[in-house]
Amino acid sequence: MSKEELLALLGDAVADGDGDKAVDLAKEAFETGVDPMEVLNDGASKGLSIIGARYSSGDAYLPDLVGSGAAMSAVMDLIFAQTEGTASLDTQGVVIIGQSKGDIHDIGKNVVSALLAVNGFEVHDLGTDVSVKTFYEKALEHNADIIAMSSLLTTSLPFMDDMVRYVNDTGTRERFFCIVGGGPVTADFAESIGADGWGQSAFDCVELCKKLMARGNPGSGPTIKVDSQAEGRA
């Protein structure tokens, strides 16, 4: 099998969420002398693009995204071991995500979480009903770049305000981007609480996180608002 064929198969295995097959193919690629970074960029990562496109066209579903994310992680672990930790496998950034206190609506947040993961972010999903303190402690523990809060309930929005004030009051505002989203969360609301960013959909959230990572300097600059459907809505 040619190198190209092998890498294409690897991409398909990641897209299909078949972790075992992806790991076997990656091993085979190393054995035939393919550079680990090529395995990553021209093989496994392609699979993530494939699954992203399948999801947005309605041909793949939430568990498929999760499966691809897991297959990708398995390949990354292997590459990391292969290069004895020297490969620069820098993630796009580290994200702590969860559903605001009191809120158990988690499907939208799960989609955001999975899409961030398939787009190369290291995601720590804290689940539902997460207190401001837990968000903060986990952000410190994982040395996060971004704290992403989701809420579908108007009565759980005040916790987003609490979060931004908490990082301010603990003198750590410049360490974490605070971003918000979910049903009732509007761009104006995000701005009013001094969040770094807001996104309308899960795809917008990925865009938003990339923009923030490129911009740098949490807590400074205007709230970035991403709404790819805005034109249709106007």
Binding site: S100, K101, G102, D129, L153, T155, S156, P158, F159
Partner: peptide
């Protein structure tokens, strides 16, 4: 409701 007697309700708090 999101307020009670003008106070903001936080989910799961006594105001709820």
């Amino acid at each position: 409701l999101a307020t009670v007697f003008g106070h903001t309700i936080r989910s799961g708090s006594p105001l709820e």
